[in-house]
Design a protein around this nucleic acid. Sequence first.
DNA 1: TGCCATCAT
Length: 682
Amino acid sequence: MSTLQFWKPGTSGPGSSLDRATETEENVVPSAPSSGAISIQSARERLPIFKHREKLLYCMEKYGVVILVGQTGSGKTTQLPQYLYEAGWAADGNIIACTQPRRVSATSVANRVATEVGTILGEEVGYTIRFEDVSDKQKTRILYLTDGMLFRETLVDPLLSRYSVIMIDEAHERSIYTDLILGLLKKIRRKRPSLRIIVSSATLDATGFRDYFCAGNSPDEATIVSLEGRMYPVEVAYLQEPTADYVRKAAETVWSIHMQQSAGDILVFLTGREEIERCLQELSEYLPTLPRNAPRLKVLALHAGLTTDEQLAVFEPADRGTRKVIISTNIAEASVTIEGIKFVVDSGFVKIRTYNPTSALSSLATVPVSLASATQRAGRAGRTSAGICYRLYPESALRSMPATTPPEITRTDLTTPILQLKSLGVDDLMKFEWVTGPPAEAVLRALENLVAAGMVGEDGRLTVVGEKVAECPVEVNIARMLFASKEYKCGEEMLTIAAMTAVQDVFVIPDGAAGALAELERRKFTAEEGDHLTLLNAYNAFARYGRAASWCKAHALSFRAMSRAVSIRAQLKKYMQRFGLPLESCQGDARRLRECLVSGYWRNGARWVADGTYRSVRGNVTLHVHPNSVLFTRKPRSGWVVFHEMEETKKTQIRILTEIEPDWLLKYGHSFRDKHTGVAVS
DNA sequence: TGCCATCAT
């Protein structure tokens, strides 16, 4: 049995005071839910933000933008909108908005605030997320919404005129919508200075946000207010030497904690499903050596690919005398909070997607986490009591870690965001005041995509189709197919395919024997033309058999994903009706459907080669079919396919393929070339 | 032959 080979700052070694200052996470003791108005009031007054109330209200009068540095549990998200409401910021029909990067946060916070205010959810306090608007046009004064929804609202109301205050919460996460909305808010404030902005962020990013809002404005434009939280200290321990295998080391560390430390659950951060399963395997090999009288160990996996039930299992408290261990991806860093964690084991790595605009290729790579992430992960050990974080790397590695993760806007395909910015009248993208500017190459590539797709003309302005597509919540190439479906008379089917390609993880294929059975189930939907038609078959079967969860389970489909596809389809259907696109059925004529697919995917063509791989039409890159594809083991008769997306992991893979005839590619390829000679398309 | 970090409209 190995012992813990960790060095703990504070017990020995240099540099501990600095480490403690930056890495102690502050957290609040959750207050018990109360029913009576008086106890709610006193609970509100116990929150750390309460004693900053007057100062905050003063700053809201004086400054245009308040950067709020608030620790977890300081009460900023729930309390500040209420203070503003009580101080009259929602008078005269004005609304106080608070954005969240995630749907669940928007709904759960709105719920709690409605209780505190003493109103029915959806009246004075409401929320708006995609597919769910629990707010009232007249009554709602405090509105929680996803940042994506607020961004979308600017397409209809460019000055966001119904709001007096907009709070952008969790801004340090730097989701693409957070960045886009911040850029727009800076612009809006120049035209409508009465609008107040609150940017809530972690310490590391605060001055950056202030400098951003002050640039080109008066120095009084923005100020920083810091709130402390109620904290439990988290001690941080490092490995003395780097490890070659952090998965094995993680299992070893969990086991050592279990043998040596008192009660308390353990949360392990790894990068993906494969690692999690290997770690589970390694741990299972220790289990037989567990002494008879020792506490038991309950080990659970946590990642987004699990079913809802499997995910819920991590929240169940372990039996008495049993320690719970959760082996998780980054989902537990910010999206999922598990109470009762006392020990965190951090691999120090994360999988991150980056987009290469030159090759139009996204890659998913395992990279070291940022200091901000490492701090956030450590903090997960201190939510209910003091805790310890074991980092599976030496302390010296901190020096080479980036301070923060690069914002999403620097790492993604900007085709859709730029279409939307154009629709908002932001025509000169180089002059747009980005919080962090995306690479120029990414902007150029996005513009080129939009021109090629007929959304933007050679003059750089939106075309008639571009104006319509900007409103429509789908990718540009999918929108093109929906428009082309009129010509091919297959609107009904394209609508379903558009919805099904927009959801991920439709088929649930577990590991081992259960996975083999699931594969057999999936084959029942298989269309020989490829994955798009297979998805269509699955959707139609789901609709035919009553959209039931039990039916999904029996057929290896994700009920969550299928239900989401139903919502998306219904939403897109409204857009098609608005755009006058007919909802005709192709009546089983798969050829028409496949041709229609090419109208959107014409740049995603690939040719089969003898070794079973494909070569991309653009760039002649070697492509591997994703094992989930129905064409994984089969050569298409024509030897040609189009695909929905490609991504570089260990290999470059293509997902969701359909067999096509090569001359269909030429048809759309020619129209692209025509555009360069000045002939208008679509 | 062998599999997607997370989130969002």
